[in-house]
Structures are given as structure tokens and as C-alpha cells.
Design a protein around this nucleic acid. Structure first.
Lengths: 216, 216
DNA sequence: CCCTCGCTAGCCAAGTTTGACTACTTGGTC
DNA sequence: GACCAAGTAGTCAAACTTGGCTAGCGAGGG
């Protein structure tokens, strides 16, 4: 569905134990509010929801050390870890045109063994090609293309997206196969969390993309 | 935001006067439920909402000719037409990584004069390039790339998407400039609506893309 | 004649997302 | 000593989305 659950699970997991504001900060550090729906409301909602569902364990905590209401710290349960890996695998292979979903999964792919990541990415390519085949078969009837007028551009656009998406994935497979990055069980992982008190270099002035769809 | 308002306004506009089920049918005919959130609930909600906001005029109508509750027919008001064109222009130029938004706009682009469509598409390319510049400037600091570990793949992915998106848009510009399609004021437009009683050839068995993100 | 099935047209409750808002602390400063 | 800005942590109502549900009608079988 949406990338928010994977992002929140991943953020809590990297800390071991984290409260909402920490998650919020990490996601901002990753720029997630730019390319996904990781806004405060969604984050706190996801935390509560997943705690209710047993994916997270909520610890009630005394008033925070620095202002604001009392904090709740969360920890990923075993069931939450399962869900995390399930989502991660699904999002690496799902070709659903939602760049935020793939982006979130890319950020965590190194939590899987290298071979599994490679297999999932190969599956991704296979699914894209399958999807492309179905669409082109379907929308290219006997009368030939061009019968659809400008509507044909829609198919053209989608097919183009599928092709370039598959091409990019093949490039990634190549890099991973060539030994890039540090995957699960290969040593110290690369972790993108802010230490307690560390300053967030990306907190402001990040390149924004204005979606100025006027509404009135 | 979402493509639903443009889709609904466009569908009602092409009919002149339409009830919810007609809109729903047109959107299905266009395959919109495949590539956007055009589901019954969203469609009826959008109709009511836009009627409340004065973008649509609601006519109460007697019980439907064929079963079900009484129907309400809608008509686009002058304000609604303005909103329609505003959204259309915004969505043609907005590079916000939401393929459904661009797709919806492509379906209606011929409602604009050819020259304006060309200008908007050129603006789109300009914005994509601007966005790309900002991102690469920002995420390629003095230490050089590779400092980010596998996180660099995220930027790589976004930049690749931007590049191929711009490339595709340039291709479209070329086709439109070369005289393709029939734009506003150039004669009989291509209209993709189902006549009353006409069968929808795409009603079932359309290629589906399974987003089987397991959730348990 | 009655009953079920399937189609038409739309509704609604539950869940999610959004962005503005609250409340509280720290640290400077006049 | 009082006040203001900035930062912390989270809440809330309003809007949107989802997908299953309702209700009316005709067709066809027994």
C-alpha cells in the first residue's frame, strides 16, 4: 500500500528502541518527507496502529528530557520483524508505479542477504516485463496503434516507464552482483541514523519540489 | 494532489451532463481504476464535494431508468471549468512522480490549444531539469559520491527517473509539434466516452497488475 | 406465480492522511 | 525577572480513500 509502515518499522529497528520524534527525525534525515507521505500525523498514526496490532511494543515513558508531552518508546516485536521483512521483500519486487514504495525498500535492502536481494530484483524485472507484455498485447488490437488518438500516448508513457524501470533495475543488479554495498552477514552495515544529539545536516534548505496545483 | 478531481471533471464535461454511474463507467472505460484511485467511493465523494464547492451543479433526477436508487445528474459550472483547466495545466507541468496525475492530464491535453500544450510540456521539461540539478547539487557534496553507501542508489533511482521522464516528454513535444492529434479549435475532437447503451470493450479481463504486498 | 440471480446505482462506516495546533522546556537578552 | 524565539513531542479535526453493503428491478426456472 503505502511506504509508511516499512519506513517506520525500519527506523525503529535501526534504533532498537525509539520514540515518535526520533522516527520522525530519522525520516526527515533520509529526506522521506520529500518523496513519501512521511508526515508527523502519518508517523504517529502508524506507530499507534502497529502497536495495537502487535508489531511494535509500546513502553510508557516519563516526561521527556527536553520539553513537550511525555514520550512513548517503541520496540519492534518478533512479529514486527516478520512484517518488516515481508514488506521489504514485497516492495522490492512490486512494480506498482509508486516510486516511494521502491525508494523505501532500496533504503533497507541491505538488511537481506545479497543473494536474496539479487533474486528479488530479478523477480522485479520479470514482473515488469510480464506487465509490459500484458498491456501491449491488450492495447494493440488488430486495427493497429493510432486508433486511439492521443489516448495512445497514455499507453506509450506507461510502457516507456516500464522499460526504463526495468533497465534501471538491471543496472542495480549488476552493481550488487559486482560486490557493491554491505549486505546482511557481510560485516558492519551502513546505518543512516542520527546519534542522540547529532545535528541533522539535511534539516532545512533541502531541494524542494513544488507541486503547485492551484485549487481555487 | 490526486488525479480524481481532474478525471471526474473531465468525464462530466465530455458528457455535458452526467450521473455518477456514467462517470464511473467512463473512467473504467479509460482503464482509470488500473492506474489511479478512481474507485466508486472516491468518484461519488468527489462529485458531492465538488458540487458543494460550486464546481458542479447537481440536478435531482427521478428514479433511474434501470434499477437502483434515484440518480443525480451533474453539470460543470463555469467555476468548475476554470478549475478543470487550472488542474489540467498544473498536472501537465508538475513533476511530482505521480504517474496517475500525468496520465490523467495526458487524457485531456487536447482540450487546450496546441501551442499552449507545447508550452506547458516545455515547462515540464524545464522543471524536471531544475529539480534534477537541485538534487544532484545537494546530494553530491565535496567527499564525492559513494559516501552514502547503498543510500546513494536512492538518488540514483530518482535521477534516472527524472532523466527518462524528461526524455519521454521531449518525444511527446516532438510528436505534438509534428502535427499529431487534434487539439482545441482544430476540428472534431477525439472523444472517449461510451454512448448510452454502448458496450464497454474493456469492462473485464483487462491486464491487471497485482500489487500483492502481503500484510500478515 | 414465486423465488433467486445478477445487474444497476449509489451509500456508508472504517481506516488513513493531512496540516495546523497545543503544551512544555531551554536559552538568550533586555 | 520577564519575555521571546526556537526546539521538542505529540494531538486533533477535517478531508479523503477504501471496499464491502444496500436496494430496486427484470429475467428465467420450477
Amino acid at each position: 500500500m503505502s511506504a509508511i509502515r516499512l519506513l517506520v518499522l525500519g527506523a525503529v529497528r535501526q534504533h532498537g528502541r525509539a520514540h515518535g520524534y526520533q522516527v520522525r527525525n530519522d525520516l526527515e534525515y533520509w529526506g522521506a518527507h520529500e518523496w513519501s507521505n512521511a508526515k508527523p500525523g502519518s508517523i504517529y498514526h502508524a506507530l499507534k496502529q502497529m502497536a495495537k496490532q502487535g508489531l511494535l511494543l509500546a513502553h510508557e515513558i516519563a516526561p521527556s528530557t527536553a520539553g513537550g508531552p511525555p514520550r512513548v518508546e517503541y520496540e519492534v516485536t518478533e512479529q514486527g520483524t516478520e512484517e518488516y521483512l515481508t514488506l521489504l521483500r514485497a516492495y522490492l519486487t512490486a512494480y506498482d508505479q509508486r516510486p516511494d514504495v521502491l525508494t523505501a525498500a532500496l533504503g533497507f535492502m541491505v538488511d537481506l542477504p545479497r543473494e536474496e536481494a539479487l533474486a528479488l530484483l530479478a523477480e522485479r524485472v520479470r514482473r515488469i516485463e510480464e506487465w509490459r507484455g500484458a498491456v501491449t498485447d491488450y492495447y494493440t488490437p488488430e486495427e493497429g496503434p493510432g486508433q486511439l488518438g492521443h489516448i495512445g500516448e497514455i499507453m506509450n508513457f506507461w510502457v516507456h516507464s516500464a522499460d526504463t524501470g526495468a533497465e534501471w533495475t538491471r543496472g542495480l543488479i549488476e552493481r550488487v552482483r559486482g560486490g557493491a554495498y554491505t549486505f546482511a552477514g557481510e560485516g558492519d552495515p551502513f546505518v543512516g541514523v542520527l546519534a542522540e544529539g547529532e545535528e541533522n545536516p539535511f534539516a532545512a534548505g533541502r531541494p524542494r519540489h513544488e507541486d503547485d496545483a492551484a485549487t481555487g
